[in-house]
């Protein structure tokens, strides 16, 4: 990294640090933020949400004149960290950066201590990324149609790997099977990396893997990508059709990362955070980072985000009932 970038990168942090020290001296300070803001990431450091949250926190720190601290609270499929935000004071000093599993959680854990709709004020969807439908190269299928033909000819013969029961990779595959009337055997792994490794090793034949884990293997020719799962083609693999284009009209699955605050956080605070977050995800730095992951910036409005959450909760609840998935 050239030295200019280094300085430019360090500058916001220094400004933020100075701001903390100078704060008592400044007479006319805004009501919010009056102290460092905690951005809870209910995932371990280095996970896909964390990778977006950290540069976001850095840019928000510079924009708000207050340090935004990333606080990793992993555990129980994001439930533990989410709960902390649900119970936090709605004063804009506690925020939540979360993955798409947020909307699947209510369907899977009926006894949650919080209400995923009522207890949160959505701010914006930060980024969205499709999954990739990948198969082992030895499998004699070159397209989604080939795969469907093989799966229909020999029901229950093909195995598909996932990052775990009731994760996005599982849910998207369940929906795929539901819409195509096929049956493949579910083989869950503990996380995305082992599931992709098992596919490379040909222990399972199919995976609807997150794009960031599957992409390097596809590029190295160790896996064959059949389609991406989003509504539009992926910008990193523009030649690859979507599942809908390839013969399953209406199929769409996109994972996302979103920013939320506790419910009843004041409107002006939400609006300010929305504006700053949208600006941050569209900055060249974050855009470039997202591109490596195969993700794209979104920046939807709070109302759009709220509608999306409502829709997805309904959809996952129906799917979970139909497929008989349980996590509780």
């Amino acid at each position: 990294m050239p030295i200019q970038t280094l300085v430019a990168g360090a500058l916001p942090a220094i400004v933020a640090a100075l701001a903390i020290f100078l704060q008592p001296v400044c007479a006319a300070q805004p009501v919010w933020p009056s102290k460092p803001v905690r951005l809870i990431v209910p995932q371990s450091s280095g996970g896909s949400t964390d990778l977006v949250a950290r540069p976001l926190a850095q840019q928000l720190s510079a924009a708000l004149g207050q340090t935004v601290l990333v606080d990793n609270r992993p555990g129980a499929g994001s439930v533990i960290g989410t709960e902390i935000v649900a119970r936090a004071a709605p004063d804009g000093h506690t925020l939540l950066a979360i993955a798409a599993s947020f909307t699947a959680t209510p369907a899977l854990h009926p006894k949650l201590s919080f209400d995923s709709e009522r207890d949160f004020a959505p701010i914006t969807v930060l980024s969205a990324f499709p999954n990739l439908l990948v198969v082992h190269p030895s499998l004699p299928v070159k397209s989604v149609q080939d795969l469907l033909a093989l799966a229909r000819a020999k029901p229950g013969m093909l195995n598909y790997g996932t990052s775990g029961a009731a994760t996005g990779t599982h849910m998207s595959m369940e929906r795929f099977m539901q819409m195509t009337g096929t049956r493949l055997v579910h083989v869950p792994y503990k996380g995305g990396a082992p599931s992709v490794q098992a596919l490379v090793a040909n222990e399972v034949q199919v995976n609807m893997a997150t794009i960031s884990t599957a992409l390097p293997q596809v590029r190295a020719g160790r896996l064959r990508a059949l389609a991406s799962t989003g509504a539009r083609r992926s910008t990193v693999l523009p030649e690859l059709p979507t599942v809908a284009e390839a013969g399953v009209p209406g199929f769409e699955y996109a994972s996302w990362t979103g920013l939320l605050a506790p419910a009843r956080t004041p409107r002006p605070v939400i609006d300010r955070l929305h504006a700053e977050a949208v600006r941050a995800v569209n900055s060249p730095d974050l855009k470039a980072l997202l591109a490596i992951e195969g993700a794209e910036p979104v920046g939807s409005t709070p109302a759009q985000f709220a509608a999306q959450i409502r829709l997805e909760i309904v959809r996952w609840t129906q799917l979970v009932k139909a497929a008989g998935i349980r996590a509780d």
Partner: peptide, 12 residues
Amino acid sequence: GALMIHGIQPGP
């Protein structure tokens, strides 16, 4: 994760 922050995707 640390490598991806720098735009490097570990892989074959």
